[in-house]
Computed example of a mutant assay.
Amino acid sequence: MHHWISSPQALSETLARWAGQPLVALDTEFIRERTYYPQLALVQLAIPGEIILVDPLVPGMPEALRPLLQDPAVTKLMHSASEDLQALQRGCQALPAPLFDTQVAAAMCGLGAGLGYQKLVEQVTGVQLAKGETRSDWLRRPLSDSQREYAADDVRHLHAVHAFLDRELAERGRHAWLRADTERALRNAAQEGDDPYPHLGVRSAQALDVDGQVRLCRMLRWREAEARRADKPKSWILDNELAVALARRPPADFREFGAVLDRHPKAPRKSRGELWETLSAPITDADRAIPLASGDSLDKQRIKALQQAVAAVAEAQGLPEGLLCARRHLEALLEGRGWPEALEGWRRELLEPRLAPILSGG
């Protein structure tokens, strides 16, 4: 059974009754198809034996949720929390700390990287969950019975999953690893900082020369700022394909630029003047000092050697390679950009002894 909470007073009364509970399961439903920021549409909370569905669209409800989210005495149990954190930060101006992310914990326990909630629940409890409302409209009211049941299932088994993973982490001595990763996830969600080098995430940027990558980086930075300002998806502002094409062969003047944009149905209209200024501004030596996407020009033998070293460490620790280190982090190391923040802490302690000789050429 679950209860629908439609007033801040009812929520406050329920949370007062839950006082002293050390663990609360938490999930959200949100909509993001037409906006940059996720629109918080539902918050699910559970303690053993009780599930509530909270309507965050009701005035005053985000404020009533905030004390629980910020209570340091209550660990919030979530699965694959990164996008939920963004939705809660945007919708409630608060983040659920401390946090126990069952997806991250499962990976640290050797159950697999990126394990979905349904698969994890089945693996731990034997229960098979329905998937019917995955793409549902969570902003509509009232929600259907099937929507509510699906939403309740998302927190119904988190306590059982946590109990299993907590024991597994204790046996492996990896609770500190999980705390480090979840604390970093919370910091990242709180900062909401723009990526200073967004071109590095575009694979086709590797085919551009230095000036082309500078132009692409500029346009993607502009796109990020414009998407935030307009609260629209980034692809609605400027898609990657058009951005790379403009960076590779910048038009000679604004007239030619307009003609190129007119041939692309998804090209910006009202803001094309700003985009042209961003694209056509003179490139300086300081601009050319940005890190470059240069995967194909890197020493492939050394990349392979680094990947093999990561694989050996992962196997020895019983970890998925993807949890330990991504290829882009190895590329950053090989390019001399130092240890990425994502590898600091326990990952660096495991990897540096194996990677340092390869990086130094030994």
Rank of each mutant, 00 (worst) to 15 (best):
Ile290Asp: 06
His329Ala: 15
Glu315Phe: 01
Glu274Trp: 14
Val313Glu: 06
His329Ser: 12
Leu330His: 04
Pro320Ala: 05
Lys300Pro: 05
Glu277Met: 10
Gly322Met: 09
Cys325Ser: 08
Val310Met: 02
Gln307Thr: 14
Leu279Gln: 07
Glu315Trp: 12
Pro320Thr: 09
Trp276Gly: 02
Leu275Ile: 08
Leu319Asp: 05
Glu321Pro: 13
Ala305Val: 05
Ile303Tyr: 03
Leu319Lys: 02
Leu275Pro: 02
Leu298Ile: 06
Lys304Thr: 12
Gln307Met: 12
Pro282Asn: 10
Trp276Arg: 04
Arg288Cys: 01
Leu292Asn: 04
Lys300Ser: 11
Gln308Trp: 09
Leu298Gln: 08
Ser280Cys: 05
Ser280Glu: 13
Ile290Ala: 03
Leu306Ile: 12
Gly273Phe: 14
Gly273Ala: 15
Gln308Gly: 13
Pro320Cys: 11
Ala289Gln: 15
Ile283Met: 06
Ala293Glu: 02
Gln317Ile: 01
Ala286Val: 13
Leu330Gly: 00
Ser280Pro: 04
Glu274Phe: 14
Ser297Phe: 09
Ala326Pro: 02
Cys325Pro: 07
Ala289Cys: 07
Ala281Glu: 13
Ile283Phe: 09
Gly295Ile: 04
Ala281Tyr: 10
Gln317Tyr: 03
Pro282Phe: 09
Asp296Trp: 10
Glu315Cys: 11
Asp296Met: 07
Gln307Leu: 07
Leu319Trp: 07
Pro320Glu: 04
Val313Trp: 05
Leu298Phe: 01
Gln317His: 11
Gly318Met: 09
Ala309Lys: 03
Leu298Pro: 00
Arg302Met: 13
Val310Trp: 02
Lys304Leu: 11
Ala311Val: 14
Gln308Met: 15
Val313Ser: 03
